[in-house]
Simulated assay, not measured.
Amino acid sequence: MEARDPELKRELDATLQARGELGPEYESALVDSFLEKVERRLDGTLDRQVRRHFAERQTATARGATRPAKGGGGFGERFGFGAVSLVLAVPLSAIGVANAGIDGLVVAWLGIVGVNAVHAARAWPWFRPRREGSGWED
């Protein structure tokens, strides 16, 4: 058995040796003790990894290296685009009805729906154009 952590390997060897000396009646206590040590080690490792991840993210944010969300953008961008579309829908509808009647209204709303559909489709992976060899995307 090759252990990555020599300290845990020593602890396991000591636990197995103690079991041999104390007998099977102490087996559950010895296993519980060893598992507590493993759990503390895992908690410490996980805590270090989480802290490192947050520190890297905070550093990247401080440097302004945050990347925009792939696809349709974040919630704010999508919500803002939808709100602007609805606000602009009122005058566009009025212009369409004034100039061409109900046909103008239908054309105006087809345009509004089309623009929103294209904006929403940016989030679909098959819709985005691929730029191979540019080195700018993952």
Rank of each mutant, 00 (worst) to 15 (best):
M1A: 10
M1Q: 03
E2C: 03
P6L: 10
P6V: 11
P6Q: 06
E7L: 12
L8V: 00
L8T: 00
K9A: 11
K9S: 09
R10L: 02
R10K: 12
D13P: 01
L16F: 02
L16Q: 04
A18N: 01
R19H: 06
E21G: 06
G23R: 03
P24A: 10
P24K: 03
E25V: 15
Y26V: 05
Y26N: 07
E27I: 01
E27V: 02
S28K: 13
A29N: 06
L30D: 01
D32K: 01
S33Q: 00
F34C: 00
L35E: 13
E36A: 02
K37Y: 00
E39V: 02
D43M: 02
G44S: 13
T45G: 05
L46M: 10
Q49Y: 13
V50T: 04
V50S: 05
V50D: 11
V50P: 01
H53Y: 09
E56H: 05
T59M: 08
T59D: 14
T59G: 11
T61H: 12
T61C: 08
A62N: 12
P68H: 05
P68G: 14
A69S: 07
A69T: 11
G71C: 09
G72R: 02
G72A: 15
F79G: 12
G80E: 11
G80T: 05
F81L: 08
F81S: 07
F81M: 09
F81G: 07
V84G: 10
V84R: 14
L88W: 04
P91Q: 00
S93H: 04
S93A: 14
V97N: 06
A98Y: 11
A100M: 09
I102L: 14
G104Y: 02
V106K: 12
V107Q: 07
W109D: 01
I112H: 10
I112A: 10
V113C: 06
V115T: 08
V115L: 15
V118Q: 02
H119E: 09
A120N: 03
R122L: 11
P125A: 15
W126H: 13
R128S: 14
R128I: 06
R130G: 08
R130V: 15
R131A: 15
E132R: 09
G133F: 13
S134D: 15
G135D: 07
W136Q: 07
E137W: 07
D138I: 03
